[in-house]
Amino acid sequence: MQHESGNERINIAIDGPAGAGKSTVAKKVAELLGYVYIDTGAMYRAVALAAYRSGVDAADGDRIARLLETLKIALYPGPDGQRVCIDGEDATAAIRSREVTLRVSQVASHERVRLRLVEMQRALAASKGAVMDGRDIGSHVLPHAELKVFLTASVKVRAARRFSESGAEQGVSLEQLEREIVERDRADAQRVHSPLVRASDAKLLDSTDLSIEQVVEQIVAWSRTKLAEAK
């Protein structure tokens, strides 16, 4: 695909709760537009994994922030999707472990941790042509993104998606995943620093009854409209 030149590219922010399909959708949108995909959730997971391996409590924001000062997190495309490296080690699979999933929301709630990662994320998007997904991209990380989408789905559908991805092999029941998603939503919405919130100018997209392809199609159509408006 032909990449658009810098002045003909926009930044796309995709926010939403856990299990809404943000990463899957963002990757496909980036691919179709020839943009760079930046998985902010993977960055927070990388920090949570490093803290877990170092024996640092997820509640200890100061120690995690200190750990982050020397931590090198790199995102790069691989043959089967984005790879995540921590200090040179490919941690793509490790950051999806259950230990990380249960700790990442608390790790992400610390202001010093968020400030450092937001700095990194903004630098990655500075030249435009980025698709970034997370929970506070449109409201905080990229408040000037030309297209903002708030992607959601019912708790039942989000839990079912998570279960089909990895729940069964991790020995977690669908009911347990539903409870954990409700708790994650509550924690993300109530945290003091950059809570999960729909930006006032974000387009709401409920994927409960839509396929991934339909969601991607809609976001690509919106992005092309925004590009046309910008010319």
Rank of each mutant, 00 (worst) to 15 (best):
S5M: 12
G6A: 14
E8V: 06
E8C: 11
N11D: 10
I12H: 00
I14P: 00
G16C: 00
G21C: 10
G21R: 02
S23L: 03
S23T: 11
A26E: 02
K28I: 10
L33D: 07
V36M: 07
A42H: 05
M43K: 06
A46W: 00
A46D: 05
V47F: 02
A51D: 06
R53W: 05
A58P: 15
A58N: 12
I64F: 04
R66G: 15
L68E: 07
K72H: 14
A74N: 09
Y76S: 11
G78D: 09
G81D: 08
Q82G: 06
R83S: 07
R83E: 05
I86Q: 02
D87I: 06
I95V: 04
R96Q: 03
R96C: 01
V100K: 03
V100S: 05
V100W: 04
H110A: 07
R112T: 12
R114G: 05
V118C: 02
E119G: 12
A126V: 13
S127A: 12
K128R: 15
G134N: 03
L142C: 08
K156C: 09
E165I: 10
E169R: 13
Q170E: 14
G171K: 03
G171R: 05
V172F: 02
L174R: 09
L177Y: 08
R179I: 07
A187N: 11
R191C: 06
S194C: 12
R198W: 00
D201Q: 06
A202T: 06
K203I: 14
L204I: 11
L205D: 06
S207F: 01
S207H: 06
D209N: 15
L210N: 07
I212M: 11
V220Y: 06
R224G: 06
T225R: 15
L227D: 05
L227C: 09
A228S: 13
A228M: 12
E229A: 14
E229K: 10
A230Q: 15
K231C: 14
